[in-house]
Design a protein around this nucleic acid. Structure first.
Lengths: 164, 164
DNA sequence: GCTTGCGCTGGAGTCCACTCCAGCTCCTAG
DNA sequence: CTAGGAGCTGGAGTGGACTCCAGCGCAAGC
């Protein structure tokens, strides 16, 4: 009946997930809605496709596979679980926002370094690290004051990533 | 002499990188500027600390360790290499910007899902996935149209988007 | 009837980025 | 003088997330 269900290859192309990954996600319990043809081939109804996109969003934003599974295991469509699921999603939202802030800080660091190099090159200078990092700092400050750089956002974001 | 050089523990606390990670980064060639005391203990001069922060920025923004190393191997402070390094950093900048866009999209997906749950709960409805994902879509669309969902970021995220 | 292509399964293998450990040295406090 | 604590090294181990593979089934095309 489901004439608009997709085969695994199409889903792979559509989502960018590899075929192997799709199968693996399914085994891991991340994709409950996948159906089968009589001879055992996977069929992805449109709902599954949408679901996959949510899973992808969660994964890409740093939620571990185990947590995604936990989220999914929170029952299929029973009203009782909606609040719980929402809490998890809201937590993830917060995490994403943090990551974005962190990302911005890091971007600022990289841009500052670029500006420093630009300055060094413009002045025909050499060394930077050991001998006169301070000079580089100075350059960066110069650039900052000159408004070449975006006004680096302040410190903050901690620990969304795994480093310890 | 370097009275303001730090020990490994302090650097660890300062940067959030574990002591083991610091040592490992060094072995891997990511931290060339680390000095030693007479009895072999690590001493991190301020320059090293700044360098670590750059490395951290690169790592956190998704550059693999191997690439960071390649970047660093591009000579220490020789003018000839600055342009190359800059190219790498600029590439990374682009990658970061892309990542931020992606993150925004994913955030939107998650928020949409939250809104969908909110809608379902408000209406006392149950199922969502298999049976009537379309309904959820519909709800999401409703919410969007009703402006219930901030089309742009919300709490804590202001200024996160540097639209450009 | 055979080959080619897609898909299936269970399990093994890989890659990355750490993280842990045993066994050692050095220093300081009691 | 001994005990404790911080660091050091080389190497082994871990966890997460895939990725690959052998061996099989089905269907279509020549």
């Amino acid at each position: 009946m489901d004439r608009d269900a997709l085969g695994i290859r199409q889903v792979s192309e559509e989502t960018g997930l590899s075929i192997d990954t799709l199968r693996w996600y399914e085994r891991e319990g991340l994709l409950p809605l996948v159906e089968r043809t009589a001879d055992g081939r996977r069929r992805y109804p449109p709902g599954a496709l949408r679901f996959i996109r949510l899973v992808q969003a969660l994964r890409r934003t740093g939620m571990p596979v185990a947590d995604v599974r936990r989220f999914i295991e929170l029952g299929g469509g029973e009203l009782a679980h909606h609040p719980e699921r929402m809490v998890l999603l809201e937590r993830q939202c917060a995490a994403i926002e943090q990551r974005m802030v962190e990302l911005q800080d890091d971007l600022a660091v990289v841009r500052a370094k670029i500006a420093a190099y630009r300055g060094l090159i413009a002045r025909g200078l050499d060394c930077e690290d050991e001998l006169s990092e301070d000079l580089v700092d100075q350059l960066r400050t110069d650039e900052l004051l000159a408004g070449t750089l975006p006004p680096a956002p302040s410190v903050g974001a901690e620990g969304v990533l795994r480093q310890r």
